[in-house]
């Protein structure tokens, strides 16, 4: 587990982030999806905040100022949804960093049928497809405008 020193976030901010992540992306056992408050996902999030730290802190600060830490579960969810929908670029950054860490977690990717690896060097297979679909287009006469003298 990351500490507040690693991420630049205070313990209060980390608690708020954990709670928020779990509200925004809750676990779904039937689909084998962890919640975004999963310890490994949260650790990834805290370790990779980097240049987004200031905006994330600003978004969390606004959430805390609205009483998020002490809110009952139902109230916390309402608060989280409304803040994330209306609180400007800071909330946008916060949402994006949660998504970018969640959707690179190997368990999440496997549950979605994705290969949990970077694209290179393995690459992917792309079907050649049915090029006979092009036949009716091949049959068309040229229709770009020819600007040369004497052109139709």
């Amino acid at each position: 587990m990351e500490t507040s020193q690693d991420s630049g976030l205070s313990a209060l901010e980390i608690d708020a982030l954990r709670r928020l992540a779990g509200v925004l992306i809750p676990p779904d056992a039937a689909l084998a999806m962890p919640g975004a408050d999963d310890p490994d996902i949260l650790a990834d999030l805290l370790a990779t905040l980097g240049r987004d730290q200031a905006r994330v802190q600003a978004a969390l600060g606004a959430l805390l100022a609205a009483g998020f830490a002490a809110a009952a579960p139902a109230e916390a969810e309402t608060l989280a949804r409304s803040r994330m929908a209306t609180a400007g670029p800071e909330a946008g950054t916060l949402g994006r960093v949660i998504l970018q860490c969640y959707y690179r977690d190997p368990r999440v990717l496997r549950a979605l049928g994705q290969d949990p690896r970077p694209p290179f060097p393995g690459g992917h297979v792309l079907e050649q497809g049915d090029w006979s679909l092009l036949d009716p287009v091949r049959a068309r006469t040229p229709f770009w405008r020819d600007d040369r003298a004497g052109a139709a």
């Binding site: 989280a80 949402g95 970018q100 994705q114």
Partner: peptide, 21 residues
Amino acid sequence: PVAEAVDSLAAGRLPWGEGHH
């Protein structure tokens, strides 16, 4: 997956909370 989620969230296609998955 990340770009799909970020784009779809911004476009209002992807909700937070229950129903996200």
